[in-house]
Design a protein around this nucleic acid. Structure first.
Lengths: 228, 228
DNA sequence: TGACGGAATTCTGCATGCAAAATGCTTCGG
DNA sequence: CCGAAGCATTTTGCATGCAGAATTCCGTCA
């Protein structure tokens, strides 16, 4: 029998704040005023401050002693760094998945892949990305390594702040789909080394798209302005 | 001009607690009583609780709602999972280092390597490990990827809780030194792919030594006992 | 007009207080 | 003798209070 546990307040707050940061509601560099956020959530400062410490250790906010918390800003270099690490984690995820995934789970990934293709055919970028993420999550789950899962998700949260959905050219989209075809093939063959390489390259290309987009330029400009 | 900032109390506490956990002063499964720790550190509960939240998000402690915090226990499986991820991070670290390291930094790694060999020759295991860590840190620094550095260090803290220093056979030690020779060679050649592979294998072997040691068995037994 | 200085205000960091949950202890019943 | 129920104690979770640092505002002076 499992114990019934209601999520504690500070955890709830961590989740809410993380979402607000990832969704851009709290933009990079935004000052996080304790009083304002307390009123917004209807809580006292204690759980809020605990939440800020956790988010800081995740890298989503930076704490300036005696000067409060700010949403972490991302430079182009930060993005590249994160994608490099993400590439390594995805590669490992793919390798382990090939060793451990069940036939049934492979078919489930195949199903997700076709769902994704349907959104691709309809040029439904938002749902395409949803399924895309679902596929990567399924591979991660098949890898069955909780430590990897934790680090992956933490980093994914930081990366997802960069909303690169709008900035994918038709050509890049076509290419991404071709890459996903090969990813599914490698997984089906249980070709761990191949899948690892494909996933890593897939992420490298994603990174290129992101750093080429205006979004990053805007963030960088803002960062420089704030620094000066 | 840089602002002078004294580390805040909760950060200090995070550091102290982390050290106590890593050094084994707070053994796996140990209950962390807020009042006791507050008296020990001479602080109030607020900064202590903030520190516990951070350590929980790092994975060093687990928070049981309304039931306090405990030092995370490690099963054999946890160790293997952590080493796998560590292998991926080290491999990336090696690859990036080969691209970015300066000739001078390579020579510094070589110097560290020879220092390590000196301790090896004297069978000074403790200092051997110190230099060993210094070499890996130097490679990590050369990789020059702060995101990677952060994740590496966080995971290194969790892994270091397993004190496998005492449990290395003469044969394994010899082999580890040979591996380090090859690691240095690959770095000197700036053979990124090769260095990545060597580092990963090096960690796999380390993992084998650890899981073969009695230390893990003891932890596992304790875990089972506590669970039953 | 603009720059400087200092007081007033705001905000953060930590300590403490209070209610609810959990734990332990005692006692009672089978 | 063992187990369960009930009460007392401990402990956690959150709110609030207070001191010091940081920021803002405003008046003064060049």
């Amino acid at each position: 029998m499992t114990r019934i546990v209601r999520a504690s307040l500070h955890e709830e707050v961590v989740g809410r704040l993380r979402e607000m940061i990832v969704e851009g509601e709290l933009p990079p560099g935004e000052r996080l005023n304790e009083r304002e956020l307390c009123e917004l959530f209807g809580i006292s400062r204690t759980p809020l401050r605990e939440a800020l410490k956790v988010l800081a250790s995740e890298g989503l906010v930076v704490l300036l002693p005696n000067r409060g918390a700010r949403v972490t800003k991302l430079t182009r270099r930060d993005i590249e760094d994160m994608f490099q690490v993400m590439g390594a984690l995805e590669a490992l995820s793919g390798e382990l998945a090939c060793e451990r995934i069940t036939d049934g789970a492979i078919e489930e990934v195949r199903a997700l892949h076709y769902e994704m293709l349907a959104h691709y055919a309809r040029r439904d970028l938002r749902n395409y990305f949803k399924l895309n993420e679902a596929i990567h999550r399924a591979i991660l789950a098949a890898a069955d390594n909780p430590v990897l899962t934790g680090m992956y998700q933490s980093l994914a949260g930081r990366i997802r702040r960069v909303r690169f959905i709008a900035n994918m050219s038709r050509e890049r989209w076509d290419e991404a789909v071709r890459e996903h075809e090969r990813i599914l093939e490698a997984l089906s063959r249980r070709d761990g080394a191949g899948l690892a390489r494909l996933l890593r390259e897939h992420l490298e290309h994603k990174c290129e798209v992101v750093v080429a987009s205006d979004v990053i330029e805007a963030v960088e400009a803002e960062t420089r302005a704030a620094a000066g």
